[in-house]
Computed example of a mutant assay.
Amino acid sequence: MRAEIKHVTEYRYQEPVWDSFNEVRLHPQRDERQNVLAFNIHVTPDVPVTSHRDYFGNLIHHVHVHERHTLLRIEAHTLVVTYRSRVPAPTSVQSLDPFRRELTEYLIASPRIPEAHWADIFEITAPLRTGDLPDFLMELTRTLYRRFTYTPGATNVRTTLEQFAGTGRGVCQDYAHAMLGICRSLGIPARYVSGYIYAGANFVGAEASHAWVEAYIPGAGWVGYDPTNNTEVVEAHVKIGHGRDYSDVSPISGSYHGSTRGELDVEVKVYDQQQ
């Protein structure tokens, strides 16, 4: 798929604020499944934009507005080509044994996924019943999709995994955190992915940044699964970055000086240029 993406974030303040600093994670990754043809970021007020790569290899842009302002607008335009993912060959969960030490950070607790036996909490009663790791991960994807209801506005960035397990309603971030917790409690290294999804493929989650999971499968590497949409990662998915959970790859995070609160408005559009 050849996708054009427009992502606009606006903060509006009733009174002027100053010394606003934001970390922006909107640049898609380049890997075997996708290639970034163009990326531009525009900021109002007009300020220089710098960048660096974080611990996980994600590209972060820095936006620092010293002057007083009542509007901060960050607009990113991206042109990216995505390709089909490789189908992982059958392999047992025991094949993970040599890799767990080097992938420890994706097996232990993280800020939004505390240590717990999440497979029991989410009532995954027959884990790895076939012994085939890719088959189990796809079955887990289907199980979460069927068990929970995608409900925009039902949760927010402060909703805990326990609360989502109790209510059964949430958004892609919650589905991803649930799958991460279950995988890690079963000894399967898994990481959180932030990105976009094309709505024209009849998937939900295109109205904002999307989230899914990558699990490590020996012989195939990191393989993506989207429990919100009951699918493996396909050409409609555009990856921005990955981390332990949402805390590591939130699209925009920052701070400012001033006594007023800001109103946030986000617009995301993903177009398939081949349509």
Rank of each mutant, 00 (worst) to 15 (best):
E4T: 03
K6M: 13
H7L: 04
R12C: 09
Y13G: 11
Q14N: 15
S20Q: 11
S20C: 12
V24A: 12
V24T: 06
H27L: 13
P28E: 08
Q29L: 07
D31A: 06
R33C: 02
L37N: 10
F39A: 09
N40E: 15
V43T: 11
T44P: 08
P48W: 02
P48M: 07
V49M: 04
G57Y: 05
L59Q: 12
L59P: 01
I60G: 04
I60Q: 00
H62P: 05
V63G: 08
V65W: 00
H66I: 15
H66G: 11
E67C: 00
H69P: 10
H69T: 09
T70N: 14
L72K: 07
I74Q: 04
A76V: 06
H77S: 14
T78E: 10
T82R: 06
T82C: 04
R86P: 10
R86V: 13
V87E: 15
P90K: 06
S92E: 10
L96R: 06
D97F: 04
F99I: 12
R100I: 11
L103Y: 06
Y106M: 10
A109E: 15
P111Q: 00
P111E: 03
P111D: 08
I113T: 05
P114D: 09
P114S: 10
E115Y: 01
W118I: 00
A119S: 15
I121D: 05
F122G: 03
E123D: 14
T125F: 07
A126S: 15
R129W: 13
R129L: 03
T130Y: 04
G131N: 04
P134T: 08
D135P: 12
F136H: 04
E139N: 03
T141Q: 01
T141W: 02
R142K: 10
L144D: 12
F148D: 03
T149V: 13
Y150R: 04
Y150C: 08
P152T: 07
P152K: 00
G153M: 11
T155Y: 11
V157W: 02
T159H: 00
Q163P: 04
F164R: 04
R169H: 13
R169G: 05
Q173C: 12
D174A: 07
M179W: 01
L180I: 15
I182R: 02
A190L: 00
S194C: 14
I197W: 02
A220I: 08
V223C: 06
P227C: 03
T228V: 02
N229Q: 09
N229Y: 01
N229L: 10
T231S: 13
T231K: 03
T231A: 12
E232Y: 02
V233E: 09
V234G: 11
V234F: 06
E235D: 06
V238C: 11
R244C: 00
D248N: 08
V249R: 12
V249L: 02
V249G: 03
S250M: 15
S250E: 11
I252M: 03
I252G: 10
G254L: 12
Y256R: 06
H257K: 14
T260H: 12
G262S: 12
E263S: 13
L264V: 12
V268F: 05
K269T: 15
K269F: 06
K269S: 14
Q273G: 01
Q274F: 07
Q275W: 08
